[in-house]
Design a protein around this nucleic acid. Structure first.
Lengths: 375, 375
DNA sequence: AACGTTTCCGGAAACAATACCGGAAACGTT
DNA sequence: AACGTTTCCGGTATTGTTTCCGGAAACGTT
């Protein structure tokens, strides 16, 4: 505690071992033009002094640090945590180190501030490359390799990982409409994010596929947070003809739906079906376990890492990644658990799957906003 | 993607702005002996070029980076995540940046390897100070400020944050014995960790306080993981006279108890009471919500951060932290939810709290291993 | 014995930034 | 007019490490 020992450098090791700093550096980096004997000697001194090389100095000189950076705009969310887990898993397998960087900025003027922070790390040459997650900024410039998870523009400047958001949302909607639901509420994510828009498109496509007219009243603008989802759900459930199902743009929001449903004394799935998106680990632990769209976030993190190290290694090539390494799409998959049931107040003993679904275009745009269920 | 622009340095900014690098540095660091006009000019160039200073070079020279480091031996766990959240919250309030460092090492020979990684970061002078969480190594040397969360020795070399593990476990046990339980299984944490030992002590103290002889068969060695807790619980529930309650050393393990209980077709809390430790956010979402000991992990992270920045600022003083800033104890608190009930198979209509608890020393060490319930 | 090759190691430059020192104007004071 | 002070800025040294270049032995070859 009190003994504030001075920092020991490669020079200290060198002098104590009676060799040059260059030789110590050689030992450190496993160069081969050095005798076995000196290696032993130097390593002994390193051990004795507890020396460890300075990441800063090393990175500055050699521009090769064996560290990959993960830039998160948000540490709190489960989503970020799962990304971290995925990245870390890949990191461990690849024998590299991981640095997670996050600038604790508040949500004001974060775009510029963030952009700065990003580049600060890249430029710092303290990492070999960087993975950026759901950036608020849409464009980047970086001299170092970079991979973007969940980019905000359709044609990102850098290699990117993206989930098939639209398709996943569509699958969820098909499931819901197959269960007979026709009044399906939707809680969006942060609309400035591409993922949020894509999922909304899937929602609308699902409506169209089932011949259900779009009802704007059933769409509430959320922000991917549980708290916001609670207030959205309250509005939805206060509607004169409240929805029989709610599709939340992510699992965190689905948790908010659960909370609000409890407030209203509604049983899930008996009175209200709920479906989420993400398949967080928590989704399976909810009561009832949440039906959701899996986008294997962890896998996205791992995939991004593998792409990045390949980029770092091969400088610019990305083999075995389709789409020329630009945009790698991860397929989504519907995970059916217990939060959805066939539409209530119609003969619950009727086996699921046998209800009538109207798919003819004639019956499509029938009553507009106040349509009544036909099955 | 293709345009791999060169890294731009302070020199580029200086030449483009027509000033010296020193002047640019002054602008960057907000020094005052510089005219307003040049500040404007330099800032314009910085903006135009998208320049950001190199963290590595800055840290190397100035030894002041405004970045605090968080060293995690494990990224996966909810525990680590909560620590991160706490640290990040404090970081944001203090207008600093956070770097989370983790070495993706496998569990073999991790002690030495970890220690290396730790020091590598410290020594890198890329952070102003470091927070280390549940280290595997028991002793450290660092030239930079350091705070340890959950240290492994009773008298840590550096300022440390620690929860009142023994007291918390004791409170949990008192609650359980008050409910009438006398056969209480215990699943330990990783026994090489101090926290694990302290909680075990609390378990034993709780037993003693209720006059229940210690039965080694009821103690299973776990490792704080859900998977291990499952196998431990299986053993416990296969005992000829199985426990009526299980105390898991952390919430993750309690989740394992839930899983195994389901395997055995046991209802919680009807057939088996379960109590955990940590009060992770997930604990409230379990079915039934888990009764657990809260140690406000997030607060521990925030507290550690505040201590660290104070250490960095004041060099060595820590006011407003008791214990001379050495060891700060965070109180634990029992959070009662729905996973515990009074002991079963004895008149369930009997109001809880009225059962007989034998506290006299005479009846204490009565039957040793094969005691029978007396209430 | 002279020469080339291999093995092993050291000196100095370079990386990008800040700290320290000093110096040129501009300004105020007697 | 001479001098001291303030304002603003630049040059040089420095930080810890790796890379580049080269050099001294040791050894093998003709």
């Amino acid at each position: 505690m009190k003994r504030n020992l001075k920092k020991i450098t490669i020079r200290d090791v060198a002098s104590k071992a009676g060799v040059s700093v260059t030789t110590v550096s050689r030992v450190l980096n496993g160069k081969d033009d050095i005798s076995e004997e000196t290696i032993k000697k130097v390593e002994a001194v390193i051990q004795e002094l507890g020396y460890a090389s300075s990441l800063a100095a090393r990175g500055m000189r050699s521009h090769r640090t064996n560290v990959v950076g993960l830039i998160l705009s948000d540490v709190d969310s489960y989503y970020s945590h799962e990304i971290m887990r995925g990245v870390n898993r890949a990191i461990a397998a690849l024998d590299k180190d991981l640095i997670v960087y996050t600038s604790g900025v508040v949500d004001k003027e974060n775009v510029a501030q963030h952009e700065r922070s990003y580049v600060a790390l890249l430029n710092g040459s303290i990492t070999d490359g960087v993975i950026v997650v759901t950036p608020t900024a849409t464009h980047f410039t970086s001299h170092a390799p970079m991979v973007i998870i969940d980019p905000n523009n359709e044609t990102p400047d850098y290699p990117a990982i993206i989930a098939t958001n639209r398709e996943g949302a569509l699958a969820a909607m098909n499931y819901l409409t197959d269960l007979g639901h026709r009044r399906i509420g939707y809680i969006t994510g942060r609309m400035e994010l591409a993922s949020s828009n894509q999922r909304l498109q899937g929602y609308k496509a699902g409506l169209a596929a089932a011949g259900i007219p779009l009802n704007e009243d059933l769409i509430e603008i959320g922000d991917y947070s549980t708290e916001m989802a609670v207030v959205c759900t309250r509005k939805l459930l206060s509607l004169p003809d409240r929805p029989t199902a709610i599709f939340a743009a992510n699992d965190m929001s689905a948790m908010g739906v659960y909370q609000a449903a409890t407030e209203f004394g509604l049983q899930i799935p008996g009175d209200l079906s709920v479906i989420g998106f993400d398949n967080l680990r928590e989704a399976a632990h909810l009561t009832p376990p949440l039906t959701t769209v899996d986008q294997s976030i962890e896998k996205m993190g791992a995939m991004a890492t593998e792409m990045l190290v390949e980029l770092v290694k091969g400088e610019s090539l990305s083999i075995n990644f389709p789409d020329e390494g630009h945009l790698y799409k991860i397929p989504t998959q519907l995970v059916i658990r217990d939060s959805c049931a066939s539409v209530p107040c119609h003969s619950p003993d009727e086996p699921s799957g046998t209800y009538l679904v109207t798919n003819s275009d004639e019956t499509l745009k029938r009553t507009g906003g106040s349509l009544s269920r036909t099955n």
